[in-house]
Amino acid sequence: MNENQDHGEASIPVLTLFVTGSAPRSQRARANLARMLEQIGRSDLQPQEVDLLEHPQQGITQSVFATPSLLKTDANGEVSVLYGDLSEEEQLRRFLAELQTNT
C-alpha cells in the first residue's frame, strides 16, 4: 500500500479529503488544504479525495459523514479527523504539524 508515498518514509501519514461534489465548502476545503500544504512545504503531497455523492459507501466504510472532512491515517492505521472547510488555519496547522518539513 501507500504507493503514492514515493518519499520512501514509511512514517508519513496518508491524507484523505472527503467532499461532496463541488459544494462551496468542499471547494473551500480543497483550497485551504492546498494552501496550508504549501505553507508547510509539503505541496508535494497529493491528498486523496473521496466524493461521497459518488461513493456514499466509502463514507459508511470509513464512518465519515460530515463533509468536508480531512482524514489522516498514519502508518500504523490510526485515524484522526478534522471536520470542516479547514478555514481555521491554526487548527489545520496543528493537525498537519507532523508533516511539516524542517524549515
Binding site: T20, R25, N32, L52, Q57, V64, T67, P68, S80, G84
Partner: peptide, 23 residues
C-alpha cells in the same frame, strides 16, 4: 449506520452532512 464522530475529532470550520445524507 454508525455515524459517531471519530474520537478526538475536531472541526476547523463549518461542515455539512451532505455526505451523510448521500450515504
Amino acid at each position: 449506520i454508525d455515524a459517531g464522530p471519530h474520537p478526538g475529532a475536531e472541526a476547523a470550520g463549518e461542515f455539512d452532512i451532505g455526505g451523510l445524507l448521500s450515504a
